[in-house]
Amino acid sequence: MSLGDEKGYGSGSGRTDDGYSTIGGTRQTRTRFPDGEGGDGYNTPRRPARNSRSLVMVVGVVVLLFAAIALANMGGGGGDSNHSSGKAGSKPDSSSTAATGTKPVTGKNGTIASGFAHDEQGAQSAASNFAVALGSAGMFNADTRRSIIQATHDPAVVEGLLAAMTKAYSPAFLENVGLNEDGTTPSGLTFVSRTVPVGTKVVEQSGDTATVEVWCTGLVGMAGQGSTKPVTATWFTISEKLKWVGGDWKVESSSQTEGPTPVNGDNRASTADEIAGAVEGYGGFTYAR
């Protein structure tokens, strides 16, 4: 899947063959009116077919980023594509969102939370925070990307991962998503890349290792007047293999799959300026349970 460059981006009725078949239990015919001619009694035009092209393109960006992460973990298990549903994990119960009595982490490694508890709850909190950081706009800048990778990953895999990231975030790729070749945002536009965890599941935990899946929704695109890559929502699940290193959880390897994706609602799409204002006005969260 790929994005175009910034300059060029851009059923039946329920009847059978029997003319006297019934619909809804009564013998009645169904008449389809042209758009705007009483199709539902309120002159409401039929909804146009949804164009999924932009969604597919944006999903391609997100998948590419995390695919690069998995590829860089040489032999670290990042290529496991069957993680999402084939393994038993801890299932949520009625107390999943209840207060645990454990205070949220207060430490910071740069702008990323640190000092997670050495238990299942701490692993879930770490995985959620790491997902947010690795899906942020900072990953598109070489300097901040290095800081994010160093703060979230096992030191043993950092250098190899950074080398892979340098290749993945090439000038051509950055230009393809609407950024300048050095990763900066064109004047007058706001680049958006945010990951929002929806839920977590511990697939496996034993001593100093844990595998946590994070179900996420994400926002990717360019906001502002003249943008040809509007901000679009995506859904995906990240599987993170964590290791207890130096008194904290760190990512050893990670992989990503698409979905689960809910049905889109009928919310009115906001203007480019509204999205840009929201991104600039609302900060992200630190996730802790």
Rank of each mutant, 00 (worst) to 15 (best):
P262T: 05
G78I: 01
R46I: 06
D248C: 01
A68H: 07
H83M: 09
W215Q: 14
I238Q: 15
S255V: 07
S54R: 15
D40C: 01
S227L: 13
E274D: 15
G135T: 03
E181D: 15
A88L: 09
N73R: 06
W244H: 00
T261M: 13
R289Y: 06
L189H: 04
M222F: 11
F173G: 02
F116W: 04
A70S: 14
Q28S: 14
A168P: 01
S95N: 09
A233W: 04
E181W: 09
H118I: 02
L55D: 15
F285D: 14
M222C: 12
K108F: 05
G60Y: 04
S2I: 06
Q124L: 01
G160D: 03
S254T: 12
T217C: 10
T111Y: 08
D273Y: 03
K91A: 13
P34V: 08
A117D: 07
A164E: 11
P171R: 02
N109F: 05
V263D: 07
S254M: 10
A156P: 00
L3H: 12
V62G: 07
L242Q: 00
I112R: 09
V158R: 01
T106E: 13
R46G: 14
G122M: 03
S128H: 01
G38Q: 00
H83T: 05
D17G: 11
Y9D: 15
T102Q: 09
Q124W: 00
Y287A: 11
E252V: 00
Y42Q: 08
T152V: 06
A156M: 00
F285E: 13
V279I: 05
K201Q: 15
Y9M: 14
L64C: 05
G76D: 01
N267D: 11
N141E: 10
A142W: 04
E159Q: 10
G8E: 14
S2P: 02
E274V: 12
G60R: 02
G14S: 03
T26F: 14
P260S: 13
T31P: 00
P186Y: 12
T16V: 08
G38T: 00
Q225W: 05
D5R: 12
V105C: 08
A156K: 01
Y9I: 11
Y42A: 06
I275P: 08
G19R: 12
E159H: 03
F191N: 02
G284E: 14
S254V: 04
D248N: 03
G8C: 12
D93S: 08
A123L: 02
